[in-house]
Write a protein that binds this DNA or RNA. Structure first.
Length: 376
RNA sequence: GGGGGGAUACCAGAGCGGUCAAAUGGGGCAGACUGUAAAUCUGUUGGCACAGCCUUCGAAGGUUCGAAUCCUCCUCCCCCCA
């Protein structure tokens, strides 16, 4: 994997660059639609690629390991062959799932014992296992096995957990170096900074992660319920320490405003379920603000979803029609909303990139943040 | 013509003397959702001057301290036999 910074903004830490992988080029900053089980819910890969114009998708080790199983995907020739997505893929390691699994998991010295959310069966995940499975899945970028701390989290636990993540990282790196992708192309391993909302821990973790010399670095454990200001503070702090010339990935973020603010702090990569999940639940992100399409006030609004929009559904469907689809529980409702939201997110990233290139990102961002988060 | 069953809030449907402004489901309305156990979950759904009061359980009378629940009568619906 190769990363080059092509432009830097005037007045913020934002940068525009390019990542080259064996499955193609990605222009940064970028947003990765989440396709947990190997597919972005409610979307064909053709729409993901040609309509939404996603450059890369994210998938999940935990889910694919449980079902259909890494062996099946490996026998298919890797995840790209299995799901038909020929562009880059990033897989998350399963650390976040173990966090969100709550009380059906427990930590051991070796790794994590957890129960499947599907059938309750017991499984053990270790750093080595996370690497082995991700090698078989064959994503272009794979993530270290970490522990995502909840919010709030006391400092003693956050420190202990961070140390564990660091320790696990070393094991991940060792295993990663001992193995190769069985499908014949290269993979990059990204380590993850933790440390909850404690500046000293974040600094310590960012330094440790930087020392690994990875091809890219991620920030985890944020956007788990802490105030946005705290998230920006931690992100800015960590960005100041992580290598400048490597891509920075802020995991799980976020709202359009969160993303623009984080780009300004030096983040290049994002993923979030918000455009897809909230879309399926009737929330539309638009250039003018947020719409809850199920609200009665849209019932006779025949204006297009987004008059200035460039994505297929924007002009094709009216608000009244989409509301009708949702109220009638038609499958097309979630499909339209997902397509629109992802198209919007990716359009927003493209615009951000353009502004960075022009060196005018800061002012544009201020205007957009206010506008995008309004409730319509 | 004879016999039987039933009418409950927007709909369906429990309740069968007090703890009932009335279970439950649907529908309606609103909210939540940030590395997806999510096409999910939560709240609300008679009125108001709202820790209380007022008007509701087909209509009208009645019994009772007290009725959606018991009695009388009226109206309408359904089933069976002829």
């Amino acid at each position: 994997m190769q990363f080059d910074i092509l432009h830097r903004d005037n007045g913020t830490a934002a940068r525009a660059g390019v990542i080259v992988t064996d499955h193609g080029v990605i222009e940064s900053p970028f947003f990765m639609p989440v396709g947990t089980a190997g597919a972005v819910k409610a979307l064909h890969i053709k729409d993901l690629s040609d309509v939404v114009k996603a450059q890369i998708m994210l998938s999940n080790t935990y889910h694919l390991y449980l079902r259909p199983g890494a062996d099946i995907i490996s026998r298919a020739g890797g995840l790209h062959k299995f799901n038909g997505w020929t562009k880059p893929i990033l897989t998350d390691s399963g650390g976040y799932q173990i966090y969100s699994l709550g009380d059906i998991r427990k930590f051991t010295d070796n790794g994590v014992v957890f129960q499947s959310h599907i059938d309750g069966s017991k499984h053990v995940f270790t750093p080595e296992k996370a690497m082995d499975v991700q090698r078989e899945l064959g994503a272009d970028i794979i993530m270290a096995f970490d522990e995502c701390t909840p919010y709030p989290c006391d400092e003693a636990y956050a420190r202990k957990s961070m140390k564990r993540t660091h320790h696990w990282l070393k094991r991940c790196v060792t295993r990663f170096e001992e193995t190769a992708c069985p499908h014949g192309y290269s993979q990059a391993l990204f380590p993850i900074v933790q440390g909850s909302v404690y500046p000293e821990l974040r600094v310590e973790s960012a330094r440790f992660i930087s020392g690994i010399g990875a091809e890219g670095n991620a920030i985890g454990g944020l956007s788990v319920g802490e105030p946005a200001g705290m998230m920006y503070e931690m992100t800015g702090l960590v960005c100041g320490i992580l290598p400048d010339l490597k891509p920075r990935y802020l995991m799980g973020v976020g709202t359009p405003a969160n993303i623009l603010e984080s780009i300004a702090l030096g983040i290049d990569m994002f993923d979030c379920v918000m455009p897809t999940r909230n879309g399926r639940n009737g929330m539309l992100f638009t250039r003018n603000g947020i719409i809850n399409i199920k609200n009665e006030k849209w019932k006779d609004d025949f204006s297009p979803l987004e008059a200035e929009g460039e994505v297929f559904p924007d002009l094709q469907y009216s608000k009244a029609f989409l509301r009708h689809m949702f109220i009638s529980k038609e499958i097309l409702g979630p499909m339209i909303a997902t397509t629109h939201n992802l198209g919007f997110y990716i359009w927003l990233m493209k615009e951000a990139r353009k502004e960075i290139t022009l060196g005018t990102f800061a002012g544009w961002k201020e205007r957009m943040v206010k506008q995008l988060m309004q409730r319509l």
